[in-house]
Simulated assay, not measured.
Amino acid sequence: MSMRWEAFLDQVVERGEYPNRPEAERASRVVLALLGALLVGEERSQLASRLPETFAIVLLNPLHAAEPLTPERFVRATAAWIEGATEQTAQWDVSAVLSVVADAAGGELMRRILLQLPPGFDLLFGHPQPS
């Protein structure tokens, strides 16, 4: 069951303390486009099926990074794509969006997604894994 567009954005607005939906949408598009490049196979398509359609399309047509993105590089890349962003604001953007993504994904899919990602991404999703 995919999350509704409004519900997804409203949660990002709330967690990121954005003044409006367009700002939350801009952050969501960048973060999901970068995330899509890190995920492959069934996990990526299953996650897409749980997101609002517009964001599912973004996830499935990712921005390809030149190098594997560690959590730090992921935040830096997000800052580079969002006009006027700093690494600090990008960290906030990433956490706001990815925590909503984690809720949409659910525990089982989230566990499989984290297995595909470099160490440290669990913290960006707000789902610290026992080491």
Rank of each mutant, 00 (worst) to 15 (best):
E25T: 08
R29H: 04
V100K: 07
P52E: 01
T78I: 09
P71H: 06
D93M: 12
L59V: 09
A104M: 02
R112T: 12
A56K: 00
P118T: 09
E43D: 10
F55H: 08
V101Y: 00
G120T: 07
S99N: 08
L35A: 08
S49Q: 11
N61H: 15
L114F: 05
A33I: 04
V31Y: 03
L109R: 07
R50N: 03
A105M: 05
V58K: 03
I113N: 04
E72L: 04
A65V: 00
I57A: 13
L51C: 03
Q11N: 14
A56Q: 00
L35K: 06
V75A: 01
G107F: 04
A77K: 11
R112L: 14
F121C: 04
Q91V: 01
A77W: 03
V31A: 04
T86C: 12
R29Q: 09
L9D: 01
A37I: 04
L39T: 13
R50C: 02
E6R: 15
G84C: 10
R111E: 13
S45T: 15
D122R: 07
L63K: 13
V13R: 15
A85I: 09
P62E: 10
A80N: 09
Q129I: 09
L47I: 05
Q88I: 10
S131D: 09
I82K: 13
R4F: 04
A85G: 11
Q116M: 12
L63C: 00
R15D: 02
E17F: 09
T89S: 15
E42I: 13
L34W: 10
L39F: 13
T54M: 08
R15K: 15
L60S: 02
P68E: 12
F74T: 05
F74C: 05
V101S: 01
W5H: 14
H127G: 03
V97H: 06
D122V: 05
A77M: 10
M1L: 14
I57M: 10
E108H: 01
D93N: 15
T54W: 07
